[in-house]
Design a protein around this nucleic acid. Structure first.
Length: 621
RNA sequence: GCCCUCAUAGUUCAAUGGAUAGAACACUAGCCUUCUAAGCUGGAUAUGCAGGUUCGAUUCCUGCUGAGGGCACCA
């Protein structure tokens, strides 16, 4: 039997008992694995079946007793099911530790890193789009959350057998990048990332910020010249700002540059390419540090016109309609939504038009694409709802069989409130990574001080990198995507408690144990029946759940299921580790071997689980 | 105005409708001459308010209060 069939086995036993004692017509519908609950306390048992759901057939408490009596007498000694108890209407099943160990450990030792993985995705291709940065400034805290989510969900889907295409859609066109270009041309004195030693994305971002600063200053100067206080709130401030921009030379230059870009002006295109190139080099460096790679990069500059044709096609088929002024709309009143503009009266595209094109492009590029997932902030929930509706209305062959899914995630706030780049209230991704690795290094050094076996400097660097990133990644992945998070630099990233390093440390302990022992060569020779401690039992039970956890994480697009599981597993292991020795003369040789195998299995699962979160498992810490 | 999301301990987060609502941080008392103390064992505190559905509700429904987001010829 495989561990994934454990629940089915238990259900079958229950079903048989209930059929015999209560009603022969019961089927697996009443006794499916989803009906089994986990008792609130481990002492109560390993699985619980609540009999409320059978109340039509009698008093639930009576039914529980019937089932118990039957199973108790029917179970042969030394079988997987050790004991059946009743607590009111709950039938509680206890498994035999040794038999469970035999079952679980031999499977994990055999399957290794494939243990817990599934095959529901076999033959299905899924595209996961995430990050989607603008090309005019470096990545920040919000991008980090997004990227870690995307990377982890990609791995989780792969573990379920899907073929995953990781896609990034870079917003590389528009006024924002033109502002960076203008600022660099005007005030840059020919500096480059190379000449200044500044990372490319930060270099470009600096000019974007400079543009904003100059604009703010010019506007403030204008207000002052009109006898107004620039700091004071004004009712008509927005109107004044708009009027100011109408005649502000840099704004006019940016507008002009945008037009030239659209007209493929070679000089503008060359500048644009150069500056975007600087930014991308910077992104690549940041993503490399996070261990993130993309299989496919889409650029808005090459996709933004695609949607237009499909909208016009839809218009000709009567799917959309045109207003008197020439603008094209979709009628979404039947869906309870406002009508949606698809093409402006001058015929140009809007945001959602581009997205229609890109969605169709994705499906045609990777035909057949079973699923297309968008990891984009929760503020765009409405946008994607509309986008998916529009695609359905267009009824395009390539897209029809693609399941479209928007995974919204919540904003990352700072203790002072929202991040605001204009106010400099922003946490830069590179700073974040650097500081967390430095902290981890300090911590590792301090711990190394008091140790007999010193860890080398080179190893310390690697440990600091792994542990620092482990802390960062676990922190971001441990809460559900949709919830907003608060990031407090002083408190958020810790190395103790419910953290990545806690789980990594548990792995390092196991690795250390395994280094001290001979390799387990023949699992068949291990006598797992020597295991009978409750701490061992809890650990085994936890190991059986891994596959279901990965599956749940995939079904819910939710890496926090994995992180929560790993924390529990590590805690259970540490409890076992603290109260039971392995290499001790008091412990029989056979028990030592079985415990060692149990440790090894735990290590396999922790390493795999961390891998699904994109976190490395250090052999030493 | 309409729509969406959220509301749990001092703080940050958990809990496919199930038994006594879990952790972590912080605070506090213990545990290293023995496999890595980034660990283990104790200790106080919480479901915004009012109804409903049912054997049972943090979870589902309705209303209210509070926070955030959205409904652009912006992206």
């Amino acid at each position: 039997m495989k561990t994934q069939n454990l629940l089915e086995f238990v259900c079958y036993q229950l079903l048989f008992a209930a059929q015999t004692t209560v009603n022969p017509d019961f089927s697996t519908a009443e006794f499916s694995p989803s009906k089994l609950k986990k008792p609130p306390k481990p002492e109560l048992g390993d699985f619980a079946f609540p009999c409320f759901q059978l109340k039509d057939f009698g008093d639930p408490a009576d039914i529980a007793v019937y089932i118990q009596d039957f199973l108790q007498t029917a179970i042969p000694a030394n079988d997987l099911i050790k004991k059946v108890e009743v607590q009111g209407p709950f039938v509680n099943i206890h498994l035999n530790t040794g038999v469970l160990a035999q079952l679980v450990c031999s499977q994990i030792l055999e399957e290794g890193p494939n243990y817990g993985t599934g095959s529901v995705g076999h033959g299905q291709r899924v595209m996961i789009e995430f990050l989607a940065p603008n090309s005019n400034k470096p990545l920040h805290l919000g991008h980090v959350r997004n990227a870690l989510l995307g990377a982890s969900i990609s791995r989780i889907f792969q573990a379920m057998g899907f073929e995953v295409i990781r896609a990034n859609l870079i917003n590389d066109r528009g006024a924002h990048i033109c502002k960076s270009i203008y600022a660099w041309q005007t005030w840059g004195n020919g500096e480059t990332p190379q000449s200044t030693g500044i990372k490319g994305d930060h270099f470009v971002g600096r000019y974007y910020a400079l543009y904003g600063k100059k604009e703010d200053e010019a506007f403030a100067a204008l207000l002052t010249s009109q006898g107004l206080d620039p700091q004071a709130p004004l009712d008509d401030k927005e109107e004044r700002k708009a009027a100011f921009l109408e005649q502000y030379p840099p704004a006019l230059a940016v507008k002009d540059m945008l037009l030239k870009w659209e007209a493929s002006d070679p000089k503008v295109l060359a500048l644009w390419q150069m500056m975007n190139g600087w930014t991308y080099a910077g992104f690549d460096a940041t993503l490399a540090k996070l261990g993130i790679v993309f299989d496919r990069i889409y650029y808005e500059s090459t996709t933004y016109l695609l949607g237009r044709q499909h909208v016009l096609d839809g218009l000709s088929r009567g799917v959309f309609y045109r207003k008197e002024d020439g603008a094209v709309y979709a009628d979404l009143k039947n869906e309870g939504l406002d009508d949606k503009l698809l093409l402006r009266s001058d015929g140009t595209s809007v945001y959602i038009t581009q997205d229609i094109g890109t969605a169709i492009l994705k499906s045609t590029d990777y035909q057949p694409l079973a699923r297309s997932v968008y990891i984009v902030g929760s503020e765009q929930i409405h946008h994607f709802k509309v986008l998916f509706l529009l695609l359905k209305m267009l009824d395009i062959e390539e897209v029809k069989n693609t399941l479209l899914y928007h995974l919204p995630y919540g904003m990352v706030n700072l203790p002072e409130g929202k991040m605001k780049s204009r106010l400099g209230k922003i946490v830069d991704a590179d700073d974040l990574i650097r500081s967390i690795v430095e902290l981890a290094r300090t911590e590792a050094e301090a711990l190394n001080e008091g140790r007999e076996e010193k860890i080398t400097e080179v190893e310390l660097d690697e440990i600091a990198r792994q542990v620092g990133l482990g802390a960062l990644k676990f922190f971001f992945l441990d809460s559900k995507a949709l919830s907003e998070m608060r990031y407090d630099p002083k408190k958020s990233i810790a190395f103790n408690g419910r953290t990545g390093p806690f789980v990594q440390y548990t792995y390092a302990r196991i690795a250390s144990l395994l280094r001290k022992a001979e390799e387990i060569k023949d699992p068949a020779k291990i006598d797992f029946l020597t295991l009978h401690e409750s701490d061992e039992h809890s650990l085994l039970l936890a190991l059986t759940e891994f596959g279901a956890v990965i599956q749940a994480a995939a079904e819910n697009y939710d890496p926090s299921k994995i992180s929560a599981y790993l924390f529990d597993l590590a805690r259970i292991f540490n409890r076992f580790y603290a109260s039971h020795r392995i290499f001790s003369d008091d412990v029989p040789k056979q028990t030592q071997l079985a415990r060692l195998a149990l440790c090894k299995c735990t290590g396999v699962v922790i390493k795999k689980g961390l891998d699904l979160l994109g976190i490395e498992a250090p052999e030493k810490m």
